[in-house]
Design a protein around this nucleic acid. Structure first.
Lengths: 226, 226
DNA sequence: AGAGATTTGTGAAGAAAAGCACAAATCCCC
DNA sequence: GGGGATTTGTGCTTTTCTTCACAAATCTCT
Protein backbone atom coordinates (compact mmCIF):
# COMPACT_ATOMS: atom_id res chain seq x y z
CA UNK A 1 0.00 0.00 0.00
CA UNK A 2 1.82 3.12 -1.14
CA UNK A 3 1.08 5.60 1.56
CA UNK A 4 1.66 9.05 0.17
CA UNK A 5 4.25 10.83 2.26
CA UNK A 6 4.49 14.59 2.44
CA UNK A 7 5.71 15.78 -0.96
CA UNK A 8 8.96 17.61 -0.63
CA UNK A 9 8.24 20.72 -2.63
CA UNK A 10 11.41 22.36 -3.77
CA UNK A 11 11.46 26.09 -3.94
CA UNK A 12 14.27 26.99 -6.21
CA UNK A 13 13.29 28.58 -9.41
CA UNK A 14 12.57 26.28 -12.28
CA UNK A 15 14.83 26.58 -15.35
CA UNK A 16 13.14 28.12 -18.34
CA UNK A 17 13.92 25.10 -20.52
CA UNK A 18 12.09 22.94 -18.02
CA UNK A 19 9.08 25.25 -17.88
CA UNK A 20 8.75 25.00 -21.64
CA UNK A 21 8.51 21.23 -21.41
CA UNK A 22 6.06 20.97 -18.53
CA UNK A 23 3.01 21.47 -20.77
CA UNK A 24 4.19 18.58 -22.92
CA UNK A 25 4.48 16.29 -19.94
CA UNK A 26 1.14 17.50 -18.69
CA UNK A 27 -0.55 16.61 -21.93
CA UNK A 28 0.99 13.16 -22.09
CA UNK A 29 -0.02 12.50 -18.50
CA UNK A 30 -3.56 13.59 -19.24
CA UNK A 31 -3.67 11.13 -22.09
CA UNK A 32 -2.35 8.33 -19.90
CA UNK A 33 -4.85 9.23 -17.21
CA UNK A 34 -7.75 9.12 -19.63
CA UNK A 35 -6.53 5.78 -20.87
CA UNK A 36 -6.76 4.50 -17.32
CA UNK A 37 -3.04 4.12 -16.66
CA UNK A 38 -2.11 4.68 -13.04
CA UNK A 39 1.65 4.45 -13.24
CA UNK A 40 4.34 5.48 -15.64
CA UNK A 41 8.12 5.27 -15.63
CA UNK A 42 10.39 8.10 -16.69
CA UNK A 43 11.41 5.91 -19.61
CA UNK A 44 7.86 5.54 -20.89
CA UNK A 45 6.90 9.15 -20.38
CA UNK A 46 10.09 10.26 -22.07
CA UNK A 47 9.30 8.06 -25.04
CA UNK A 48 5.82 9.56 -25.30
CA UNK A 49 7.04 13.12 -25.18
CA UNK A 50 10.19 12.83 -27.23
CA UNK A 51 12.77 13.67 -24.59
CA UNK A 52 15.39 11.53 -22.89
CA UNK A 53 14.49 9.89 -19.61
CA UNK A 54 17.36 11.61 -17.80
CA UNK A 55 16.17 15.01 -18.93
CA UNK A 56 12.65 14.19 -17.90
CA UNK A 57 13.73 13.10 -14.44
CA UNK A 58 15.83 16.18 -13.96
CA UNK A 59 12.96 18.37 -15.08
CA UNK A 60 10.60 16.75 -12.62
CA UNK A 61 13.17 16.93 -9.85
CA UNK A 62 12.88 20.72 -10.00
CA UNK A 63 9.28 20.48 -8.90
CA UNK A 64 9.85 18.07 -6.06
CA UNK A 65 10.35 14.35 -5.57
CA UNK A 66 7.11 12.91 -6.79
CA UNK A 67 8.33 9.55 -8.02
CA UNK A 68 9.07 6.30 -6.24
CA UNK A 69 12.36 4.57 -6.85
CA UNK A 70 12.06 1.18 -8.40
CA UNK A 71 8.46 1.96 -9.33
CA UNK A 72 7.93 5.14 -11.31
CA UNK A 73 5.38 7.94 -11.03
CA UNK A 74 1.70 7.87 -10.22
CA UNK A 75 0.04 9.35 -13.27
CA UNK A 76 -2.74 11.26 -11.59
CA UNK A 77 -0.63 12.59 -8.76
CA UNK A 78 2.18 13.78 -11.00
CA UNK A 79 -0.29 15.34 -13.38
CA UNK A 80 -1.87 17.26 -10.55
CA UNK A 81 1.47 18.49 -9.29
CA UNK A 82 2.46 19.80 -12.71
CA UNK A 83 -0.92 21.48 -13.11
CA UNK A 84 -0.53 23.16 -9.76
CA UNK A 85 3.00 24.27 -10.49
CA UNK A 86 1.91 25.76 -13.79
CA UNK A 87 -1.10 27.54 -12.40
CA UNK A 88 -3.61 25.53 -14.41
CA UNK A 89 -5.90 25.25 -11.45
CA UNK A 90 -6.46 28.96 -11.56
CA UNK A 91 -8.72 30.32 -14.25
CA UNK A 92 -7.10 32.63 -16.75
CA UNK A 93 -9.00 35.22 -18.74
CA UNK A 94 -7.74 35.75 -22.26
CA UNK A 95 -8.55 38.35 -24.88
CA UNK A 96 -7.82 37.99 -28.58
CA UNK A 97 -7.14 40.99 -30.74
CA UNK A 98 -7.49 40.58 -34.49
CA UNK A 99 -10.05 38.20 -35.95
CA UNK A 100 -8.77 37.60 -39.42
CA UNK A 101 -8.18 34.05 -40.58
CA UNK A 102 -5.75 33.27 -37.83
CA UNK A 103 -7.54 35.06 -35.02
CA UNK A 104 -10.81 33.31 -35.81
CA UNK A 105 -9.06 29.96 -35.92
CA UNK A 106 -7.51 30.66 -32.53
CA UNK A 107 -10.81 31.77 -31.04
CA UNK A 108 -12.48 28.58 -32.18
CA UNK A 109 -9.56 26.34 -31.36
CA UNK A 110 -10.74 23.99 -28.66
CA UNK A 111 -7.39 23.41 -26.97
CA UNK A 112 -7.24 27.09 -26.28
CA UNK A 113 -10.45 27.51 -24.40
CA UNK A 114 -9.88 24.28 -22.51
CA UNK A 115 -8.45 23.71 -19.07
CA UNK A 116 -7.93 26.95 -17.29
CA UNK A 117 -8.18 29.38 -20.17
CA UNK A 118 -11.32 31.29 -20.90
CA UNK A 119 -11.67 33.65 -23.80
CA UNK A 120 -13.47 36.68 -22.45
CA UNK A 121 -12.96 39.28 -25.14
CA UNK A 122 -12.58 39.55 -28.91
CA UNK A 123 -11.49 42.74 -30.64
CA UNK A 124 -11.10 43.84 -34.21
CA UNK A 125 -10.63 46.99 -36.14
CA UNK A 126 -12.83 45.99 -39.08
CA UNK A 127 -16.34 47.49 -38.99
CA UNK A 128 -17.70 44.48 -40.88
CA UNK A 129 -16.72 42.16 -38.04
CA UNK A 130 -17.71 44.29 -35.07
CA UNK A 131 -20.89 43.12 -33.45
CA UNK A 132 -20.85 39.66 -34.98
CA UNK A 133 -20.60 36.76 -32.59
CA UNK A 134 -18.13 33.93 -32.46
CA UNK A 135 -18.48 30.60 -30.76
CA UNK A 136 -15.47 29.94 -28.56
CA UNK A 137 -15.77 26.60 -26.88
CA UNK A 138 -18.85 26.82 -24.71
CA UNK A 139 -19.99 30.41 -25.03
CA UNK A 140 -20.60 32.94 -27.76
CA UNK A 141 -18.71 36.21 -27.68
CA UNK A 142 -19.37 39.40 -29.56
CA UNK A 143 -16.54 41.06 -31.41
CA UNK A 144 -15.85 44.52 -30.01
CA UNK A 145 -14.23 47.51 -31.68
CA UNK A 146 -10.47 47.81 -31.24
CA UNK A 147 -10.87 51.47 -30.38
CA UNK A 148 -12.43 50.30 -27.16
CA UNK A 149 -9.55 47.98 -26.36
CA UNK A 150 -7.86 49.64 -23.42
CA UNK A 151 -11.08 50.43 -21.60
CA UNK A 152 -12.83 47.12 -22.24
CA UNK A 153 -9.86 44.92 -21.39
CA UNK A 154 -9.33 46.75 -18.15
CA UNK A 155 -12.91 46.09 -17.24
CA UNK A 156 -12.62 42.40 -18.16
CA UNK A 157 -9.56 42.18 -15.90
CA UNK A 158 -7.78 39.94 -18.42
CA UNK A 159 -4.06 39.60 -17.95
CA UNK A 160 -3.37 37.42 -20.97
CA UNK A 161 -3.66 38.81 -24.47
CA UNK A 162 -3.31 37.22 -27.89
CA UNK A 163 -2.26 39.43 -30.77
CA UNK A 164 -3.26 38.24 -34.23
CA UNK A 165 -3.19 41.49 -36.17
CA UNK A 166 -0.95 42.58 -39.05
CA UNK A 167 2.62 43.48 -38.08
CA UNK A 168 2.07 47.17 -38.79
CA UNK A 169 -0.41 47.64 -35.96
CA UNK A 170 0.87 45.01 -33.55
CA UNK A 171 2.94 47.42 -31.46
CA UNK A 172 0.02 49.79 -31.07
CA UNK A 173 -2.25 46.95 -29.99
CA UNK A 174 0.44 45.73 -27.63
CA UNK A 175 0.74 49.15 -26.02
CA UNK A 176 -3.02 49.30 -25.55
CA UNK A 177 -3.08 45.86 -23.97
CA UNK A 178 -0.30 46.79 -21.58
CA UNK A 179 -2.10 49.99 -20.71
CA UNK A 180 -5.17 47.91 -19.90
CA UNK A 181 -3.20 45.78 -17.45
CA UNK A 182 -2.27 42.80 -19.62
CA UNK A 183 1.06 41.39 -18.46
CA UNK A 184 1.46 38.35 -20.72
CA UNK A 185 1.17 38.46 -24.46
CA UNK A 186 1.14 35.77 -27.11
CA UNK A 187 2.18 37.45 -30.32
CA UNK A 188 1.36 35.97 -33.72
CA UNK A 189 2.35 39.08 -35.63
CA UNK A 190 5.69 38.69 -37.37
CA UNK A 191 7.37 41.52 -35.52
CA UNK A 192 9.18 42.21 -32.29
CA UNK A 193 7.13 43.91 -29.60
CA UNK A 194 8.77 46.12 -27.05
CA UNK A 195 7.18 46.12 -23.64
CA UNK A 196 8.00 47.48 -20.22
CA UNK A 197 9.62 45.27 -17.60
CA UNK A 198 7.24 42.82 -16.05
CA UNK A 199 5.39 42.08 -19.28
CA UNK A 200 6.16 38.74 -20.91
CA UNK A 201 5.87 38.26 -24.63
CA UNK A 202 6.04 34.95 -26.42
CA UNK A 203 6.10 34.94 -30.14
CA UNK A 204 4.73 32.32 -32.48
CA UNK A 205 6.05 32.91 -35.94
CA UNK A 206 4.73 30.64 -38.63
CA UNK A 207 6.92 31.89 -41.44
CA UNK A 208 10.05 31.65 -39.29
CA UNK A 209 9.29 28.06 -38.45
CA UNK A 210 9.07 27.17 -42.12
CA UNK A 211 12.28 29.02 -42.83
CA UNK A 212 14.11 27.14 -40.10
CA UNK A 213 12.94 23.89 -41.62
CA UNK A 214 14.02 25.06 -45.06
CA UNK A 215 17.46 25.84 -43.69
CA UNK A 216 17.94 22.32 -42.42
CA UNK A 217 16.43 20.92 -45.56
CA UNK A 218 19.01 22.75 -47.59
CA UNK A 219 21.79 21.41 -45.40
CA UNK A 220 20.57 17.88 -46.05
CA UNK A 221 20.79 18.47 -49.79
CA UNK A 222 24.28 19.89 -49.56
CA UNK A 223 25.38 16.83 -47.67
CA UNK A 224 23.90 14.53 -50.25
CA UNK A 225 25.63 16.25 -53.13
CA UNK A 226 28.93 16.53 -51.25
CA UNK B 1 33.30 54.30 -52.24
CA UNK B 2 33.04 50.98 -50.42
CA UNK B 3 34.41 48.48 -52.84
CA UNK B 4 32.99 45.13 -51.94
CA UNK B 5 35.74 42.70 -51.19
CA UNK B 6 35.30 38.96 -51.49
CA UNK B 7 33.04 37.91 -48.64
CA UNK B 8 34.80 35.48 -46.38
CA UNK B 9 32.24 32.77 -46.13
CA UNK B 10 32.76 30.71 -43.03
CA UNK B 11 31.98 27.07 -43.21
CA UNK B 12 31.57 25.92 -39.70
CA UNK B 13 28.11 24.81 -38.82
CA UNK B 14 25.80 27.46 -37.54
CA UNK B 15 24.53 27.06 -33.96
CA UNK B 16 20.88 26.14 -33.74
CA UNK B 17 20.09 29.16 -31.59
CA UNK B 18 21.49 31.35 -34.33
CA UNK B 19 19.50 29.61 -37.04
CA UNK B 20 16.33 30.26 -35.12
CA UNK B 21 17.07 33.98 -35.10
CA UNK B 22 18.06 34.41 -38.72
CA UNK B 23 14.45 34.66 -39.94
CA UNK B 24 13.92 37.49 -37.48
CA UNK B 25 16.90 39.40 -38.76
CA UNK B 26 15.82 38.70 -42.30
CA UNK B 27 12.41 40.17 -41.73
CA UNK B 28 13.75 43.28 -40.07
CA UNK B 29 16.21 43.78 -42.91
CA UNK B 30 13.42 43.41 -45.45
CA UNK B 31 11.51 46.09 -43.65
CA UNK B 32 14.52 48.42 -43.59
CA UNK B 33 15.14 47.72 -47.26
CA UNK B 34 11.57 48.56 -48.21
CA UNK B 35 11.86 51.72 -46.20
CA UNK B 36 14.85 52.69 -48.33
CA UNK B 37 17.51 52.34 -45.65
CA UNK B 38 20.87 51.31 -47.03
CA UNK B 39 22.86 50.87 -43.85
CA UNK B 40 22.22 49.61 -40.38
CA UNK B 41 24.37 49.13 -37.29
CA UNK B 42 24.28 46.06 -35.09
CA UNK B 43 22.89 48.30 -32.38
CA UNK B 44 19.94 49.43 -34.49
CA UNK B 45 19.16 46.01 -35.89
CA UNK B 46 19.39 44.52 -32.43
CA UNK B 47 16.95 47.08 -31.13
CA UNK B 48 14.52 46.27 -33.94
CA UNK B 49 14.65 42.55 -33.34
CA UNK B 50 14.81 42.47 -29.58
CA UNK B 51 18.24 40.92 -29.11
CA UNK B 52 21.46 42.40 -27.76
CA UNK B 53 23.90 43.86 -30.24
CA UNK B 54 26.68 41.50 -29.13
CA UNK B 55 24.49 38.49 -29.75
CA UNK B 56 23.49 39.82 -33.13
CA UNK B 57 27.09 40.35 -34.17
CA UNK B 58 28.10 36.91 -33.01
CA UNK B 59 25.18 35.39 -34.90
CA UNK B 60 26.16 37.17 -38.09
CA UNK B 61 29.80 36.27 -37.64
CA UNK B 62 28.84 32.64 -38.12
CA UNK B 63 27.74 33.40 -41.66
CA UNK B 64 30.81 35.41 -42.62
CA UNK B 65 32.16 38.88 -42.15
CA UNK B 66 29.61 40.99 -43.92
CA UNK B 67 29.90 44.19 -41.94
CA UNK B 68 32.33 47.07 -42.05
CA UNK B 69 33.97 48.26 -38.86
CA UNK B 70 33.14 51.77 -37.92
CA UNK B 71 30.25 51.72 -40.38
CA UNK B 72 27.80 48.87 -39.94
CA UNK B 73 26.07 46.57 -42.41
CA UNK B 74 24.70 47.23 -45.87
CA UNK B 75 21.05 46.36 -45.59
CA UNK B 76 20.51 44.83 -49.01
CA UNK B 77 23.74 42.88 -49.03
CA UNK B 78 23.28 41.43 -45.57
CA UNK B 79 19.69 40.56 -46.35
CA UNK B 80 20.76 38.70 -49.44
CA UNK B 81 23.41 36.78 -47.56
CA UNK B 82 20.98 35.65 -44.91
CA UNK B 83 18.47 34.62 -47.57
CA UNK B 84 21.10 32.60 -49.35
CA UNK B 85 22.28 30.97 -46.17
CA UNK B 86 18.72 30.01 -45.27
CA UNK B 87 17.84 28.67 -48.67
CA UNK B 88 15.19 31.26 -49.35
CA UNK B 89 16.35 31.68 -52.90
CA UNK B 90 15.28 28.14 -53.64
CA UNK B 91 11.61 27.48 -54.02
CA UNK B 92 10.07 25.17 -51.49
CA UNK B 93 6.93 23.16 -52.11
CA UNK B 94 4.70 22.74 -49.10
CA UNK B 95 1.67 20.59 -48.48
CA UNK B 96 -0.86 21.16 -45.73
CA UNK B 97 -2.78 18.29 -44.20
CA UNK B 98 -5.94 19.10 -42.29
CA UNK B 99 -8.12 22.04 -43.28
CA UNK B 100 -10.12 22.73 -40.19
CA UNK B 101 -10.08 26.21 -38.71
CA UNK B 102 -6.36 26.28 -38.25
CA UNK B 103 -5.40 24.58 -41.50
CA UNK B 104 -7.55 26.96 -43.53
CA UNK B 105 -6.06 29.94 -41.74
CA UNK B 106 -2.57 28.65 -42.50
CA UNK B 107 -3.41 28.01 -46.15
CA UNK B 108 -4.69 31.53 -46.55
CA UNK B 109 -2.02 33.14 -44.43
CA UNK B 110 -0.04 35.37 -46.72
CA UNK B 111 3.30 35.22 -44.97
CA UNK B 112 3.28 31.50 -45.57
CA UNK B 113 2.94 31.52 -49.29
CA UNK B 114 5.37 34.39 -49.60
CA UNK B 115 9.05 34.36 -50.41
CA UNK B 116 10.17 30.93 -51.31
CA UNK B 117 7.28 28.86 -50.06
CA UNK B 118 4.60 27.63 -52.37
CA UNK B 119 1.64 25.64 -51.19
CA UNK B 120 1.17 22.88 -53.71
CA UNK B 121 -1.17 20.50 -51.99
CA UNK B 122 -4.07 20.51 -49.52
CA UNK B 123 -5.44 17.35 -47.94
CA UNK B 124 -8.29 16.53 -45.66
CA UNK B 125 -10.19 13.56 -44.44
CA UNK B 126 -13.62 15.21 -44.43
CA UNK B 127 -15.77 14.38 -47.46
CA UNK B 128 -17.52 17.73 -47.18
CA UNK B 129 -14.24 19.56 -47.83
CA UNK B 130 -12.79 17.36 -50.55
CA UNK B 131 -13.07 18.93 -53.95
CA UNK B 132 -13.62 22.46 -52.69
CA UNK B 133 -11.05 25.03 -53.62
CA UNK B 134 -9.04 27.34 -51.42
CA UNK B 135 -7.26 30.49 -52.39
CA UNK B 136 -3.68 30.41 -51.16
CA UNK B 137 -1.87 33.57 -52.08
CA UNK B 138 -1.87 33.70 -55.84
CA UNK B 139 -3.45 30.42 -56.92
CA UNK B 140 -6.44 28.31 -56.06
CA UNK B 141 -5.91 24.76 -54.91
CA UNK B 142 -8.37 21.94 -54.62
CA UNK B 143 -8.58 19.98 -51.43
CA UNK B 144 -7.71 16.34 -52.00
CA UNK B 145 -8.68 13.26 -49.99
CA UNK B 146 -6.27 12.27 -47.25
CA UNK B 147 -6.46 8.66 -48.40
CA UNK B 148 -4.51 9.80 -51.42
CA UNK B 149 -1.84 11.47 -49.33
CA UNK B 150 1.19 9.28 -49.82
CA UNK B 151 0.72 8.92 -53.56
CA UNK B 152 -0.17 12.53 -54.31
CA UNK B 153 2.57 14.07 -52.18
CA UNK B 154 5.16 11.88 -53.81
CA UNK B 155 4.00 13.08 -57.18
CA UNK B 156 4.08 16.72 -56.05
CA UNK B 157 7.66 16.20 -54.86
CA UNK B 158 7.03 18.29 -51.76
CA UNK B 159 9.54 17.91 -48.98
CA UNK B 160 7.87 20.21 -46.47
CA UNK B 161 4.64 19.22 -44.81
CA UNK B 162 2.35 21.04 -42.39
CA UNK B 163 0.21 18.94 -40.08
CA UNK B 164 -2.94 20.61 -38.79
CA UNK B 165 -5.05 17.61 -37.91
CA UNK B 166 -6.33 16.40 -34.52
CA UNK B 167 -3.71 14.80 -32.29
CA UNK B 168 -5.26 11.36 -32.65
CA UNK B 169 -4.43 11.06 -36.34
CA UNK B 170 -1.28 13.18 -36.46
CA UNK B 171 1.13 10.25 -36.22
CA UNK B 172 -0.62 8.42 -39.04
CA UNK B 173 -0.51 11.53 -41.24
CA UNK B 174 3.13 12.02 -40.31
CA UNK B 175 3.98 8.45 -41.31
CA UNK B 176 2.25 8.93 -44.64
CA UNK B 177 4.11 12.16 -45.29
CA UNK B 178 7.43 10.55 -44.50
CA UNK B 179 6.54 7.64 -46.76
CA UNK B 180 5.86 10.15 -49.51
CA UNK B 181 9.32 11.66 -49.15
CA UNK B 182 8.61 14.61 -46.86
CA UNK B 183 11.67 15.29 -44.70
CA UNK B 184 10.61 18.41 -42.79
CA UNK B 185 7.40 18.70 -40.87
CA UNK B 186 5.73 21.58 -39.12
CA UNK B 187 3.41 20.06 -36.57
CA UNK B 188 0.46 21.97 -35.12
CA UNK B 189 -1.09 18.92 -33.50
CA UNK B 190 -0.55 18.87 -29.75
CA UNK B 191 1.37 15.63 -29.73
CA UNK B 192 4.87 14.32 -30.19
CA UNK B 193 5.59 12.78 -33.58
CA UNK B 194 8.19 10.07 -33.93
CA UNK B 195 10.03 10.05 -37.20
CA UNK B 196 13.04 8.24 -38.64
CA UNK B 197 16.45 9.89 -38.63
CA UNK B 198 16.81 12.58 -41.23
CA UNK B 199 13.30 13.92 -40.79
CA UNK B 200 13.00 17.20 -38.90
CA UNK B 201 9.92 18.08 -36.94
CA UNK B 202 9.16 21.44 -35.47
CA UNK B 203 6.19 21.79 -33.25
CA UNK B 204 4.01 24.83 -32.78
CA UNK B 205 1.86 24.35 -29.76
CA UNK B 206 -0.66 27.05 -29.05
CA UNK B 207 -1.92 25.69 -25.77
CA UNK B 208 1.60 25.16 -24.45
CA UNK B 209 2.51 28.74 -25.21
CA UNK B 210 -0.42 30.00 -23.18
CA UNK B 211 0.46 27.66 -20.35
CA UNK B 212 4.01 28.91 -20.26
CA UNK B 213 2.72 32.46 -20.02
CA UNK B 214 0.33 31.44 -17.28
CA UNK B 215 3.22 29.93 -15.34
CA UNK B 216 5.15 33.18 -15.35
CA UNK B 217 1.99 35.11 -14.63
CA UNK B 218 1.46 33.03 -11.54
CA UNK B 219 5.02 33.65 -10.41
CA UNK B 220 4.45 37.38 -10.71
CA UNK B 221 1.44 37.12 -8.43
CA UNK B 222 3.32 35.09 -5.85
CA UNK B 223 6.02 37.73 -5.77
CA UNK B 224 3.50 40.46 -5.27
CA UNK B 225 1.84 38.75 -2.34
CA UNK B 226 5.16 37.75 -0.79
C1' DA C 1 14.22 -11.84 5.75
C1' DG C 2 17.60 -11.51 2.20
C1' DA C 3 19.15 -11.47 -2.72
C1' DG C 4 18.39 -9.68 -7.14
C1' DA C 5 15.96 -6.62 -10.29
C1' DT C 6 14.04 -1.97 -11.16
C1' DT C 7 13.90 2.81 -11.39
C1' DT C 8 14.38 7.31 -9.31
C1' DG C 9 17.08 11.44 -7.99
C1' DT C 10 21.20 13.86 -8.50
C1' DG C 11 26.16 15.14 -8.30
C1' DA C 12 29.59 15.88 -11.76
C1' DA C 13 31.14 16.37 -16.44
C1' DG C 14 30.35 18.14 -20.94
C1' DA C 15 28.19 21.08 -24.50
C1' DA C 16 25.80 25.06 -26.01
C1' DA C 17 24.49 29.68 -25.55
C1' DA C 18 24.92 34.30 -23.83
C1' DG C 19 27.45 38.23 -22.26
C1' DC C 20 31.67 41.02 -21.75
C1' DA C 21 35.15 43.90 -23.23
C1' DC C 22 38.50 45.41 -26.28
C1' DA C 23 41.73 45.31 -30.35
C1' DA C 24 41.26 46.14 -35.21
C1' DA C 25 39.32 48.46 -39.00
C1' DT C 26 37.08 52.26 -40.93
C1' DC C 27 35.32 56.96 -41.28
C1' DC C 28 35.37 62.06 -40.68
C1' DC C 29 37.29 66.40 -40.09
C1' DC C 30 40.69 69.64 -39.83
C1' DG D 1 47.68 62.69 -43.40
C1' DG D 2 46.91 62.29 -38.58
C1' DG D 3 43.83 62.26 -34.43
C1' DG D 4 39.45 61.24 -32.57
C1' DA D 5 35.05 58.92 -32.98
C1' DT D 6 32.54 54.75 -34.46
C1' DT D 7 31.43 50.12 -34.83
C1' DT D 8 32.60 45.42 -36.07
C1' DG D 9 34.52 40.81 -35.00
C1' DT D 10 36.01 37.79 -31.52
C1' DG D 11 38.70 35.63 -27.54
C1' DC D 12 37.42 34.86 -22.92
C1' DT D 13 34.20 34.28 -19.08
C1' DT D 14 29.90 33.10 -17.21
C1' DT D 15 25.62 30.99 -17.34
C1' DT D 16 22.35 27.67 -18.81
C1' DC D 17 21.18 23.28 -20.55
C1' DT D 18 22.09 18.40 -21.44
C1' DT D 19 24.07 14.02 -20.68
C1' DC D 20 26.25 10.52 -17.93
C1' DA D 21 26.47 7.22 -14.48
C1' DC D 22 25.59 5.48 -10.14
C1' DA D 23 24.05 5.34 -5.11
C1' DA D 24 19.72 5.06 -2.77
C1' DA D 25 15.17 3.43 -2.46
C1' DT D 26 11.72 0.28 -3.49
C1' DC D 27 9.68 -4.01 -5.12
C1' DT D 28 9.44 -9.19 -5.94
C1' DC D 29 10.32 -13.78 -5.17
C1' DT D 30 11.63 -17.48 -2.60
Amino acid sequence: MPLRTAPSVKRGKIPEATVARLPIYYRALTQLFERGETRVSSEELAELTGVTSAKLRKDLSHLGTYGTRGVGYEVEYLRFQIAREMGLNNDWSVVIVGLGNLGRALARYGGFGSRGFQIVGLFDHDAKLIGSKLRTGKSEIEIMPATDLARAVKQLKARLGVIAVPAEVAQKVCDDLVKAGVTSILNFAPTHLSTPDGVDVRRVDLASELQILAFHEQKKNEEKSA
